[in-house]
């Protein structure tokens, strides 16, 4: 199909517009992270790029103090970073593994036909609505401010999402492929992990990425269920506000840059699958 120059131009205008909207805050964050304190505010006139680029902000959040800064931190980023990584990864594993197994059972064996809807209902109200009872429960079992307590709630909250996403992927796997494997002599388990899982691998990767991002960017659950030891990055970021130096824009931006790295790396790792998507060529109808 031949596209007229006008249409092409229009297309680019829209693409650029969308990109600008998405990238503008990102760019702002990245440049801010490298600006020294005087350049944070309008006093010296705001610029797009730092006039005197510095790693001061990073130094500060990693070491708690930095040359030329009077303020200091009683907590560095290291603890929250580890906390975020551990709880997000564990929560993701929990949600993806149990969501995958559950949705496979529902799709392939017709078990618990009412489960999909009830799981969805779980997702219909905001987690905040049940947070008070959850806090009581977590306190009761000693899960508050532990890595497993937070991982558990992450897994639970994102499970419906993982379940529904994996369900749609499994529904697209033709049952005959599994039957063919079973006739060849595979047990149910073997069919599942040698045939079905590899086929839905792109879906699995996509699902894991989305769930990871949901967990990684959570603020509310971590705020309510952690106190000190297992504070996560978003909660930690909020604490940077109230230090005596006022708003620490540069440090927050530096923190943001660091916080953006794991999802980006994860995304790049599975990019091949994301781009390819699900292509089932086995069926010739």
């Amino acid at each position: 199909m031949k596209v007229s120059p006008g249409a092409l131009a229009l297309k680019y205008v829209f693409v650029l517009l969308a990109a600008a909207v998405v990238l503008y805050p990102l760019l702002w964050m990245v440049t801010m992270a490298f600006k020294p304190y005087p350049e944070w505010t309008t006093v010296s006139g705001l610029t797009w790029f730092p006039k005197n680029p510095t790693l001061q902000n990073f130094e500060f959040i990693f070491y708690g103090e930095a040359e030329g800064l009077v303020v200091s931190l009683d907590r560095t980023i290291v603890g929250p970073l580890i906390s975020s990584l551990v709880t997000s990864i564990c929560g993701t594993l929990l949600a993806v593994v149990s969501g995958t197994l559950a949705s496979y059972a529902v799709v392939r064996f017709g078990l618990a036909q009412s489960l999909p809807l009830s799981v969805l209902q779980l997702r219909l109200f905001p987690p905040l609505a049940v947070m008070i009872p959850v806090m009581v429960m977590w306190a009761f079992i000693g899960a508050v401010d532990t890595w497993w307590g937070l991982s558990l709630i992450y897994g639970i909250v994102t499970l419906p999402f993982a379940f529904w996403l994996m369900k749609t992927f499994f529904e697209e796997v033709p049952v005959e492929i599994e039957d063919a494997a079973r006739v060849s002599g595979c047990s149910y388990w073997r069919v599942f992990y040698r045939i079905t899982l590899p086929i839905v691998k792109p879906g699995l990767a996509t699902c894991a990425l989305f769930v990871f991002i949901l967990n990684w960017s959570d603020y509310l659950l971590a705020l309510l269920l952690t106190q000190k030891d297992w504070v996560t990055l978003p909660v930690y970021m909020a604490t940077l506000t109230s230090a005596m130096g006022g708003q620490m824009y540069g440090m927050k931006a530096a923190l943001g840059v660091i916080a953006a790295i794991p999802p980006v790396v994860f995304g790049l790792m599975i990019q091949k699958h994301l781009v390819r998507g699900l292509t089932f060529g086995a069926l010739k109808q």
Partner: peptide, 13 residues
């Protein structure tokens, strides 16, 4: 048992 399926069910992966 050998079974050739209506839609072949080839393991495309």
């Amino acid at each position: 048992i050998g079974f050739v399926f209506q839609n072949y069910a080839i393991f495309t992966h």
